[in-house]
Computed example of a mutant assay.
Amino acid sequence: MLYKPFQDLKLSTLGMGNMRLPTVGERGPIDQEKARAIIEHAYHQGVNYFDTAYRYHGGESEGFVGKVLSQFPRGTWYLASKMPGHMMNYKDGKLGFQGYLAGEEVKSIASIFEEQLEKCGVDYFDFYLLHNLCETSYDFYTNEELGVVRYLLEQKEAGKIRHLGFSAHGRADTIGKFLDHYPDTFEFVQIQLNYLDWELQDAKSKYRLLEGRGIPVIVMEPVRGGSLANLRPDCQQLLEAARPEDSMAAWAFRFLQSLPGVQVVLSGMTTMEQLEENLRLFSQDDPLTDDEKALLQKVVADLADLVPCTVCRYCCEACPQGLDIPKLISMYNEINYNKGLGSLSFTLNAMEEKELPSACLGCGACEKLCPQSIAIPEVLGKFNKALQST
């Protein structure tokens, strides 16, 4: 098992995510026998970072993971969980759940945190995160009257949190703004990072932001929910020709091994076979070569059919509406690939009408300045039409 230092700790580079444990039936409860065997085997093979959250597996994950890990000496494993602020609101001094938790009772931030400690059967969390900092949760997490961050810092001072961070599905500028709002507060950040989202979700900007600030990156969705482990046949053939013995998942994990700012790669392993393969892949450091990186870029271009925006921003200088055109094109690429909004809904719900593609006048001033000759009004028109149909 590969390890990397994190302050005074040594963390396994492969971490176990506990959002996709085996279940009884497609949407049933956790299959406790199979899930226990996977967690125990991961631990015995050197995995020491285990990630869960308040509502994983309908709230079942925290208690189950904590119970399984409790059989091992406490100092030999590190448990991470999260405050579900992205599913909460605070209005007129009243705290409540939203989304599919709407209507469920919540007394306070403290009551949730204490409930999590009790469910996990621990006196402290090794790693604790604000769950999903994004454009729609930013105001909740920065609300000084509610004081989420202040409360968690108090728990850290009391020894109930060893290391504080946050996960994020927001854009890079949102992450940067949040870090500036709370300087020298967060010790790590968890982001969705893989070779497809490097371009598609502009994960490269998030990674470079964090690397530039010296903040370790915890990776979620390294194979994008399994889609990068099962590529389209033509793309798979390109990679198999270069390294016949490698699986598609190996390419995804080797891409992440090429990024020195990555601390832990979380993998939600549903089967023992997935675990065994990941253990093998993280038994030796094998980063991509420059030629292999170029090959992956070709695969991404074939997979996503991206509008080739280079974010030079010349187009923005001519836009009479002041639109952030590169941002909109990036979002169009993502929605076009996903065939749906996905995590883009967080960003879109926080945008004003004047910022959306519907504000485009179709004047063409931007297109005249584009070095890539992108038909920008046409792209924004397609983006607007896609939004109207969702």
Score class of each variant (00 low, 15 high):
240 E>V: 15
68 V>P: 01
223 V>S: 05
119 K>F: 12
85 G>S: 11
103 G>C: 13
309 C>Q: 00
304 A>D: 10
82 K>I: 11
185 T>Y: 09
306 L>I: 14
31 D>E: 11
135 E>R: 00
331 M>Y: 14
102 A>T: 10
129 L>R: 02
242 A>W: 07
157 E>W: 05
351 M>L: 15
289 T>S: 13
369 L>W: 07
240 E>Y: 12
163 H>Y: 10
28 G>C: 13
186 F>H: 02
60 E>D: 14
263 Q>T: 06
318 A>K: 14
7 Q>L: 10
85 G>R: 00
118 E>R: 14
290 D>W: 11
182 Y>K: 05
309 C>M: 02
268 G>K: 03
273 E>N: 06
231 L>C: 09
170 G>Q: 00
64 F>P: 04
19 M>E: 06
7 Q>P: 04
316 C>N: 14
283 S>F: 07
332 Y>H: 09
339 K>A: 11
389 S>T: 12
269 M>I: 09
95 L>T: 13
154 E>R: 10
244 P>G: 15
304 A>G: 15
317 E>R: 09
298 K>L: 15
167 S>M: 08
304 A>M: 09
296 L>C: 11
167 S>Q: 04
206 K>T: 02
233 P>Y: 14
50 F>D: 01
337 Y>Q: 14
154 E>Y: 10
153 L>G: 05
88 M>D: 01
89 N>L: 07
53 A>R: 00
287 P>L: 08
213 R>M: 11
361 L>R: 09
275 L>R: 01
177 K>P: 09
96 G>C: 11
318 A>C: 12
357 P>H: 01
343 S>T: 13
90 Y>L: 12
86 H>S: 13
183 P>L: 07
235 C>S: 15
78 Y>C: 03
117 L>V: 12
203 A>R: 01
231 L>I: 08
340 G>W: 04
363 C>G: 05
88 M>S: 05
340 G>N: 06
96 G>Y: 02
